[in-house]
Amino acid sequence: MSEDVKVKVRGLTKKFGDLLVLDNISFDVKKGDFVCIVGPTGCGKTTFLNLLVKLLEPTEGQILIDNEPADPKKHNMAFVFQEPSAYQWLTVEENIQYGLKIKKYPKDVIEERTKEIMETLGLEAVRKSYPHELSASLEQRVVIGRAFALHPDLLLMDEPYAQMDIKVRYYLEDQVIKLWQKTGSTVLFITHNIEEAVYLSEKCLILSNKPTTIKEEKKIELPRPRNIASSEFIELREYVTSQIKWW
């Protein structure tokens, strides 16, 4: 396996009873890449991420991270779910630190990372607040912060902005790019929003309808910061949209 491949998926198949959801999927993700996974609703995008973090077991096939079978206990991974998953009994600060404490990082590293994340995501003012005191978007920022605080080798995000209004979404998309560039993490980002996928990613994995296969791996070679009104951006967005169309 090439040195710079972070995730290697080979022949991944998932069945729920007789229902074939993922059909013999294979692809590679390079270290430090930002990959968006797009596809029709219900095609199995979330199932794929759940397989990657072992919340589900594959029917067939292999997922290797750094050439070893994927395992959250072994690999430095983080996951941001669609619904806010902040721990209600922990303050914002304690939530950010939780993953670091689980992985037994030294105290000074925990302090340093907490400060870094708080500043980057603008959470200092709510440091001692509990999640239920925050708006949904602010709570999701806490969860993103908890994930990035680990400086994960692999960060998985499952439509994290699906429930946000457009203004907040734009802001958080820029925050994620900032954190990705700062930490050098490899990011797999699921979205059904094509504009978001083209804006964020270095590469789009376009999935087909069920039983799901990879229809195309599309490189997004646009300079950053990206301009969503530029003709190149619109052209790419329309191309990806046309690839997803099943009608």
Partner: peptide, 27 residues
């Protein structure tokens, strides 16, 4: 189950899932 899954993905072991996530959530 989202809370448990979030803990699992962060690498929590069974004891941590019980004492640090399940029990506080159930208090």
């Amino acid at each position: 189950s989202l809370l448990i899954n979030a803990g699992l993905v962060l690498g929590a072991n069974r004891r941590q899932l019980l004492t640090e996530i399940t029990l506080p959530a159930t208090t």
